[in-house]
Nucleic acid binder design. Structure first.
Lengths: 116, 116
DNA sequence: AATATATGACGTATTTTTGCGTCAAATTAC
DNA sequence: GTAATTTGACGCAAAAATACGTCATATATT
């Protein structure tokens, strides 16, 4: 893209898009699933679970942290990563309300074949 | 990326990630909102609503069509785009079930501060 | 103190995405 | 028939994402 056009869209759309984007890579979904399953914070050996190098995984962790879906807590030389429950709740609300908006403003709930 | 590593992840994650990715751009969210609001299929003048060129919008439409969230129906020289209700329903189910999986396998519902 | 380990910062190469202009084909209007 | 519209295909350039290696730093371990 020649120019960055992202700021031409309204704030809400940009925020939602950023959230979706963060979830738009299998590695990051895998990280979330893994962290969810571990429950107790593991010391950043997540890379062993994925078919990616440690530095690459680190980058994905950074992305997830950026949108707040995970937290990283330094403990000595190690770092404990875990899911941020509040953000997951917020994610769910955001997504469902967006979809609900789509569904209601289109007539999905009531009408059938109004369209096409 | 030197090599394409995507196929190293399991099918389910890849499908979900692809879906999230399609929603990971404000222009595409804007298109969805617009189509939802229009209800009746408009003849592809969506580009007038967005701060992007026609060809760029066309590309985004292609992306949305690829994941099935919208349908395009040719009518003479024009093309009518509209939201695919079934896919939106499916999207909602997919998202909520993924999030639910995260929430239950981590102990978000019951425990507090088990983690971090 | 010397060594080993864990981590993030940095740089780099490759691929993908984004954005747009141009063009050709098809259709509609005149 | 001729001109105008609408659209998708194609190609191209800039930007971002992806993947990884190397390095420096900080903390354990010996």
């Amino acid at each position: 893209m020649a120019i960055n056009k992202l700021e031409l869209f309204e704030e809400g759309l940009r925020r939602n898009a950023a959230l979706f984007k963060a979830l738009g890579h299998p590695a990051r979904l895998a990280v979330l699933k893994y962290l969810a399953g571990i429950k107790t914070c593991i010391c950043g050996d997540i890379s062993n679970e994925l078919p990616l190098s440690r530095t690459t995984v680190n980058q994905h962790l950074k992305e997830l942290k950026k949108v707040g879906l995970i937290k990283g807590e330094v403990e000595g030389v190690k770092t404990n990563y875990c899911i941020n429950p509040e953000k997951v709740e917020w994610l769910e609300k955001t997504l469902t309300s967006f979809i609900e908006e789509i569904k209601t403003s289109s007539g999905i709930i009531k009408t059938e074949d109004d369209c096409c």
